[in-house]
Nucleic acid binder design. Structure first.
Lengths: 214, 214
DNA sequence: TGGGACATACCGACTGGTTAGTCTGCCCCT
DNA sequence: AGGGGCAGACTAACCAGTCGGTATGTCCCA
């Protein structure tokens, strides 16, 4: 299989289940491999998870994995791409809405918390294993992250310029402030804990908005 | 060398330089090994750093490393112990001070930011590689971290009970909120950036205090 | 004061095990 | 009959930890 074809297959690995997949048949192999790898990376870390472990857990062999993916690192990169696309798309939606800036920021800030918790495996991997990427892929991921960061910062600056947010703290720092708490969710949030994802999101967004009160 | 003796030597690895070390002589080997390992772990991650790399960079051989440390993991654990002891000691000092609770919380919150930045290599390792510890050491580290967390939470609860902090957000969540931003420092803070450690600390402590205003 | 007994500090070759990735070939669908 | 989709044995590299060995003290008793 050519590398270009692999690219296509990787893109398809994210498609919804059961599209062209009749009855009780199992997930397509590429999808199953990515899902299995995601879980294992989140549980044990990237370096501690061997390719053999992944294929065993997915019920296939190395031949299958290297048929669909070019390398172990490709799996990691795939996870990153998924998270980045999802969060960027959602941020854009909230930031472009027709509402006062306080509301847009609150909604965007809360939404990223909810989607982070709902994809906690992906985001755990994202924050914990970023430095395992090769220089080129790392550069690409950083560029996409910067785009996200800047969109978020623009919201805060808008509020600062129009006077609804305090301007005596750098907007950049506020972005990292909020994403620190988002980043940290993977460390402490437990599904069986006392707070629902939405409750956590409301609290964190509330704290951010209050910290920004003039 | 017995294991108990190794314990002693490890404890000494933290001593100040030049105590019984005359003239221009290099650092003691154990100290140099730990410092080198810390730097390499922070740069490349624990799993990506081989023991051979560490001893090469420190200018010794494996024999020396295993003379002073029981295992590669011991080096990691040593870094953790250093960070935990330092931060717990400082938190206790600020929390026990004779001042209004707002002031004590502000000082403690700002101090942990400054010491985190000043020991950014250690804290990078701490947050990124915690899950590389063996179950027993992990348990020990978690216990010490919980003690730290609870001391910090007590400060917030005190303020909530006396009415100087808003009580409509769980104190636990506020602790994780702040430590999220501290945790995150290793990702974005650059020594050559526009803000000094103290400035970052003042901003972050300010944001926390404002978020807690009733 | 000299010398044996023992400890410390370190060297570096070696071992057993693991790992990512490759390659050849079979099976099945079209 | 030709190629996509995989199986599974294989390889070359690497890695943590071990172990026998050496050099440099230090202590103690004759």
């Amino acid at each position: 299989m050519t590398d270009a074809r692999k690219e296509q297959v990787r893109a398809m690995a994210g498609i919804k289940e059961g599209a062209s997949n009749g009855g009780g048949a199992a997930k397509p192999v590429a999808q199953r491999l990515l899902a299995t790898a995601t879980r294992l990376f989140a549980e044990q870390g990237y370096d501690r998870t061997s390719v053999q472990e992944i294929v065993d857990a997915a019920g296939v062999t190395k031949g299958a994995l290297y048929h669909y993916f070019g390398s172990k690192e490709d799996l990691l990169h795939e996870v990153y791409g998924r998270v980045l696309r999802l969060q960027q798309e959602r941020l854009d939606r909230f930031a472009d809405a027709d509402a006062p800036v306080e509301q847009r920021l609150r909604d965007a800030a809360a939404d990223v918390v909810v989607t982070t918790i709902e994809n906690l495996d992906d985001t755990k991997i994202f924050f914990r294993s970023m430095h395992h990427l090769s220089p080129e892929k790392d550069k690409q991921v950083r560029a996409e992250r910067r785009r996200y960061h800047e969109r978020f910062r623009a919201l805060i600056e808008e509020g600062q310029h129009t006077g609804v947010f305090s301007a005596d703290v750098p907007a950049d720092l506020v972005v990292d402030y909020h994403f620190g708490s988002v980043h940290h969710l993977g460390t402490w949030y437990r599904e069986d804990g006392p707070l629902s994802p939405q409750q956590v999101a409301d609290h964190l967004a509330g704290l951010l908005l209050r910290a920004l009160r003039p």
